[in-house]
């Protein structure tokens, strides 16, 4: 490989990586970062979307809902696990509060966008256009990459990216034996 072609290859790789980065989206005093949607199993009747919202303003806002042309409807849900190992999932009544000066993260084991009735499978590398609806700031369009974890700080393809989450969830790396692509879980350790 000549120096020239190597330079081109590096530039190309950087562009590819760059395209996988999600740019923060600004809406008034709100900044939306790290959106991602979990890949869905075939025919899955629901999907989960995650993101972080920073409120730089002086007043509380609320994430009250969302829409996407790629699914029937979207709700804001909270997942919780009881001491008895019972999983519960509930709509967040009145929407999710985004207090002033705070960052609220929707992440595995906590809040998620419940995407009901996806019109097709969500596959890694694809994007889901979502319009977030806030009580005060209004609406904003955000492109959610389909990935196995937040991609704002790293490329999609390489499994766990930086980030982590307030709710304690983690992005899992690619695990062997998966026919549908890795999905994040609580236990990213390799078997």
């Amino acid at each position: 490989m000549t120096k020239m072609t190597r330079a081109l290859a590096v530039a190309g790789a950087m562009m590819l990586a760059g395209s996988a980065f999600a740019q923060p989206v600004q809406l008034g005093t709100l900044t939306i970062t790290s959106p991602w949607v979990r890949p869905t199993p075939p025919g899955a009747p629901s999907a989960a979307g995650y993101l972080s919202i920073v409120n730089h303003g002086a007043a509380e806002d609320r994430l009250v809902g969302a829409t996407t042309p790629d699914a029937a409807s979207v709700q804001v849900h909270e997942m919780s696990m009881t001491g008895n190992g019972v999983m519960k999932m509930r709509p967040v009544p009145g929407g999710l509060a985004i207090p002033p000066g705070r960052t609220v993260t929707l992440a595995p084991d906590g809040y998620h966008l419940m995407i009901i009735g996806p019109r097709q499978e969500f596959k890694p590398g694809e994007r889901v256009p979502v319009t977030l609806v806030f009580k005060h700031a209004g609406k904003v369009a955000v492109s959610f990459p389909v990935a196995n974890g937040p991609v704002a700080n790293g490329p999609v393809a390489n499994g766990p990216a930086a980030g982590g989450s307030a709710a304690g969830g983690q992005a899992g790396g690619a695990m062997p034996g998966m026919t549908m692509g890795a999905m994040p879980g609580k236990a990213p350790a390799k078997p």
Binding site: A44, A47, P108, M175, G177, G185, A187
Partner: peptide, 19 residues
């Protein structure tokens, strides 16, 4: 199957263990 997080995550882990 309507479970978007815990069930697919568990089945993904089970698949990885089987593999």
């Amino acid at each position: 199957t309507f479970c978007p997080e815990v069930c697919p995550t568990t089945l993904t882990h089970m698949s990885a263990w089987l593999h």
